[in-house]
Design a protein around this nucleic acid. Structure first.
Lengths: 344, 344
DNA sequence: TCCTCCTGTTGAAAGGTTTCAAAAGCGCCG
DNA sequence: CGGCGCTTTTGAAACCTTTCAACAGGAGGA
C-alpha cells in the first residue's frame, strides 16, 4: 500500500502533516505507543503506511545515543564451532530485541582492529569477541572508551571485562588420558600457532595427563602448525605418514576438529589405518566430526551455551549498574567414537 | 595515549577547539585530508589522539545520507556453502572499502523480513540475499523503496534486480548422468522442502538425465525432506536402510552435502556399505565433503565467485547510473570421489 | 603595485529523530 | 460552576557531523 514514491525520503514530519498531528506525537507512536490514544495511533499508523515511512535509524541513534545492536567479532567463519557460538549469541540477543552484527576477523589481527574501530564509530552497545590475541591493546582501548566487551572462548584474570570460556587444560587432559588408557605410548599433539592460548593450554592439559599417569613427558611430541585449518591437518598427516614406523606416534591429539579432519583425510589417502595405525582425537566436536571418514573422538564444548552466556553477560554489563565482571568457565566433555577405539 | 575520560563523548567541536581550528577543517581532515595543509593535518590528528576522538557514524550518515555498508542475509549459517559465499562477498566489499553486515535468517521467513526491515532503517547501500522465497513480497518492497537488491543462488526472470546463481538443472543432470553411467538402475533423489527452487531444479535436471538416457522416469524416486540439514539426511538413511533390498535404490543423489553427510553417517552406522550397497552423490562440494566417512562425490559450485560477483553487481547498481540488471548463471562441475566409485 | 588565481580555512545551515517541559483537553468532585 | 488531577498532545531544542558558499592570504603575472 505504498503509493508515494517520487518524493525521496519520507520523514516523521511528512507523517505528522499527513496525519494532522505534531512531530512529537509521531515519535510517541514509534517509541511509546501506550501513551497515545487509540484514535491517534490508528491515524498515524495509516499515514505511515500510505507514505511508506521508514524510520531513519541514524537519526534515531544520533539523538537517542544508544544503538540497539551488539556485535560478535569471530575468529574464523569457516569453523563451525564459531558459527554455533554465534547462533547462541543471536538467540540471546533476539530475546532482548537487539540485533547482532557478525564480523569475521578471519584470523587476521589487522582486520580485527579495523572492525573494532568501525564498531566504535557505530556506537554499538557492546562487543563480543574471540580475539586473535586477548592481550592486544586495542581491546583495552575499547573498554577505556566505555564500550563493554566480553571475551569469548578465552580467559584472562583481569577485571576490566567479562569472559566466557571452556577449561582447555581439563579438555587437553581428558583427551590425553583417554589415549593413555587405551595403551598408546607415543602421542603427537598437533596444533598451532603457539601464540593461541587454546593451543598452549590444551597441550598443557595433555602434559598433566602424562604426569599423573607417570609416563615420561618426552613421549608426547608437539607438532606445530601455522593454523587450525583442514589444510594444516593434511600437512601434518603427510608428515606423520613419512616417519619410520618405529618412531611414528600411535595416536594424535589435535587442537581442533578441523585439523583432525584434515589429518584423518590424509591418513585415508595414504593408507594409514585409523584407529589401528593411528588413533585420532579432535577438539570441539563440531557436527561434521561425527560424520567423518572414521567418526571422530572429540572433546565437546557447550558451544551455543558459550554464546548465550557471553551475550547475557554483555547485556547485564550494558544494563545493570551493579554489574560485576565475571570469568565464566565451562567444563568440556569427551565424546568417544571410532577414531580412537581400542585396537582389536 | 588517551588521557581525557570524564567528559563523555568527544566531538569534532572539541577537537576543533583543542587544535585551534574550525569545525569545517576537522571535517576536512576526516574526509578530504588532501585538501588540508600538512601542518594543520598534524595538529588536528594530534588533538584527535589526545582527546580519544571517535567519529560518530550515525551523525555522519545522517548528514551524508550514504551508509558505506551493505548486507548479506544468508539462509543458513551452519551450512559452509553459505559462509564461503559470504567470504566472497566480504572480499569484494573490502576492496571497495565497504563493510558487510552478515545476517542469518536461519531458514525462517519471519526472521528474514525482520532483518530486511532493520536494514532499510539502517539505510544500507544495498542488500544481498539468499531468500527463503524469491517471490516474497518483502523483496519487491525493498526494491520499491529504492534499495538495490541482488538475489544470491536463485534466479528469476525479472528485471527489477540482478541475480547470481549456478545452473541447478545442469548440476542435477551431471549428478544423475554420472550415476546412470555407473549402471545404477534405481536412484533416490533426497531433498526438500519442495518450496525451495534448488530442490526442484536439481530434481528436474536428474529427470532430464533419465530422459536422455532412455531410462524410465519411475526409476527415480524422490524422497522429500523438511530441510537441507544433516539430521534430515540421517532420517533419510534410516528410511532407505529399512526398505527391502529388492526395492531399495542402489544410489542416492542428495540436494546438498549436509544431507549427503547425514545419509552417509547413518549408512555407516547401520552397516550399509558405501558405495557398494548405496552410492551417494552430494551437492555443493563443501570442504567437509572430501573429508567424509567415504569421500563424497559432489557437484561443485564456484562459491566464493558467486559471492564476489553478487557483490560486484550490487556495487555497480549502487554506483553506476547506467546499470543494467543482469542474471548471471555459473556452470557447476562434478567432482567424483569414493562415495560413487564403480562397484567392483 | 594591482589584480587574478589558487590553496586552505571558515562558519552557518541542514539532516531526521527524540526529548522534555509545558500546554491543552477532559472528567470529576466539591 | 470553579478547580483539580489525569491523560494526551505540542513544539522547540538538541544530538554531531558534513556541506558549501564565501573568505583570507600568498604567489605569480601584468
Amino acid at each position: 500500500m505504498t503509493q508515494e514514491r517520487p518524493a525521496r525520503a519520507v520523514g516523521v514530519k511528512d507523517v505528522a502533516a499527513a496525519a494532522g498531528v505534531s512531530l512529537g506525537t509521531v515519535s510517541n507512536v514509534l517509541n511509546r505507543p501506550d501513551r497515545v490514544s487509540a484514535d491517534t495511533l490508528a491515524k498515524v499508523r495509516a499515514a505511515m503506511n500510505d507514505l511508506g515511512f521508514v524510520r531513519n535509524e541514524s537519526a534515531r541513534q544520533l539523538r537517542a545515543g544508544s544503538s540497539s545492536a551488539l556485535a560478535y567479532v569471530m575468529l574464523d567463519a569457516t569453523n563451525p564451532f564459531f558459527t554455533d557460538v554465534a547462533q547462541g549469541i543471536e538467540q540471546a540477543a533476539e530475546r532482548s530485541g537487539l540485533s547482532v552484527f557478525i564480523c569475521n576477523s578471519d584470523n587476521r589481527p589487522e582486520r580485527e582492529r579495523a572492525y573494532l574501530a568501525r564498531l566504535l564509530e557505530q556506537r554499538v552497545q557492546g562487543i563480543l569477541i574471540t580475539p586473535n590475541d586477548p592481550d592486544d591493546a586495542s581491546l583495552a582501548e575499547v573498554v577505556a572508551r566505555g564500550v563493554p566487551i566480553v571475551i569469548v572462548d578465552r580467559t584472562r584474570d583481569v577485571d576490566t571485562h567479562c569472559s566466557v570460556a571452556v577449561d582447555d587444560v581439563v579438555g587437553g587432559e581428558l583427551a590425553a588420558r583417554h589415549l593413555l588408557e587405551l595403551g598408546h605410548e607415543r602421542i603427537a599433539y598437533i596444533g598451532g600457532p603457539e601464540t593461541l592460548g587454546q593451543v598452549r593450554e590444551r597441550l598443557e592439559g595433555a602434559r598433566q595427563a602424562f604426569a599423573s599417569a607417570g609416563v615420561p613427558p618426552d613421549r608426547l611430541t608437539a607438532l606445530v602448525t601455522t593454523g587450525l585449518v583442514v589444510a594444516e591437518g593434511r600437512r601434518a598427516g603427510e608428515l606423520l605418514a613419512g616417519l619410520p614406523l618405529a618412531r611414528r606416534p600411535t595416536a594424535a591429539f589435535c587442537a581442533n576438529d578441523m585439523l583432525a579432519l584434515g589429518l584423518l583425510q590424509q591418513c585415508v589417502t595414504l593408507g594409514v589405518r585409523v584407529p589401528e595405525d593411528l588413533a585420532i582425537v579432535g577438539y570441539d566436536d563440531i557436527d561434521f566430526a561425527a560424520a567423518a571418514a572414521v567418526p571422530l573422538t572429540s572433546v565437546r564444548q557447550p558451544r551455543r551455551q558459550l554464546g548465550e552466556t557471553a551475550a547475557e553477560l554483555l547485556l547485564d554489563e550494558a544494563g545493570n549498574p551493579a554489574h560485576q565482571h565475571r570469568q565464566v568457565v565451562f567444563t568440556p566433555e569427551l565424546v568417544v567414537r571410532g577414531s580412537s577405539r581400542r585396537p582389536a
